[in-house]
Amino acid sequence: MSYAGPEFEPPRRPRRRPLTMALAALVPGALLGWVVYEGLGAVGDGDGGSESAAVRTPSATVSSATESSPTESSPADDEKPSPSPTTSSPSSAPAASGPLKDKVVVIDPGHNPANFQHTAEINRKVDIGTGYKECDTTGTSTNSGYTEAKFTLDVAHRMRTLLEKQGATVKLTQDGDRSYGPCIDERAEIGNEAHADAVVSVHADGSGTGNRGFHVILPGTVNSGAADTRPIVASSRDLGERIAGNFVRVTGSAPSNYVGDGTGLVTRKDLGGLNLSTVPKVFIECGNMRDTKDAAQLTSGTWRQKAAQGISDGIVSFLRA
């Protein structure tokens, strides 16, 4: 997502802190493995950039490709997403057996491919507890026009397939079956009403060139109006740390070089999707769509499968703990 949108304002620079012990304990060799991966000059890894790159640049705004209906050439076989059900229902039938039997996971694919056609609807203000923000945004895109909304839905489909194989019941907040949205408050409500054991909102960032890497956004402590995150802060951090560790391990991607001080973790209090959640929930920004090296990964079906696997492995680890 682009932080330029109303739901995604620039976060305050987080206080410097070491990589959490829980993340290190989860995958003790993950970050070390990435360093070796980087040193060997693997395809897709690149220059890290400085910490001062945390300041958002004008390129973080949504591109014109997001404002109009983008076209794409048909992907190669490895680019094609996992098949999705023909039903418009956002939920799946529970698997018969598996280690996650009786567990419910809600996947929230950020934005909606058709949001740009419904500006009046997505600009409607909704209550997020700490104030009011627009219902949704269009999201960002790569410079070539591959939209965040297409990316998030593709990764969500891949995650659903992986998690259902583990026996989980998987629900999506939207499956390309809505004309716009849902709004950020409804996205939170879907997870709450499902009594989800874990919710992950999938995004990709829209920062400046040279800003690279992923980060997981954790809910801060909020107790205001309709929002009370106090019961879920600790469990959400556990979920986020496990996802971050597994994302490094599976994708080989580095934590963000522009937010999070190298931890891959950022705490925020301004996102309605987190503020209004009553179940463990995190966001993940899988990379920066406006950086050419990150964009090369985000537009690769092979890499998106790895991203889905890393996020899913983190969810499985959390639910089996």
Rank of each mutant, 00 (worst) to 15 (best):
D45S: 08
T86F: 12
G44K: 03
I284F: 07
V199P: 04
Q117M: 15
A24P: 02
L162K: 13
M289R: 00
T267I: 04
G264R: 02
S2E: 08
L172P: 00
T119P: 11
K269N: 12
G139V: 03
G210T: 04
K165A: 15
G49R: 03
G210S: 10
A65G: 10
G262I: 01
A22N: 09
G181F: 05
S179F: 06
H195Y: 07
T61S: 12
V106L: 09
P85D: 15
D270P: 01
G210E: 02
E189R: 13
D197H: 01
T299E: 13
S52N: 14
T119N: 15
T302A: 15
G210R: 05
S50G: 11
K80N: 11
V105P: 04
I190M: 13
E241C: 03
A296L: 07
Q174I: 08
V279L: 03
V43Q: 14
G213W: 01
G29N: 10
E193H: 03
G225W: 02
S144I: 02
I107S: 06
V170W: 00
F214A: 07
K101I: 07
A194D: 06
Y180D: 02
F247Q: 04
Y3F: 11
M1I: 09
N143A: 14
V36R: 12
I190Q: 15
P231R: 04
R242I: 05
A114H: 12
A308Y: 03
A149G: 03
T147C: 05
S312L: 10
R158D: 15
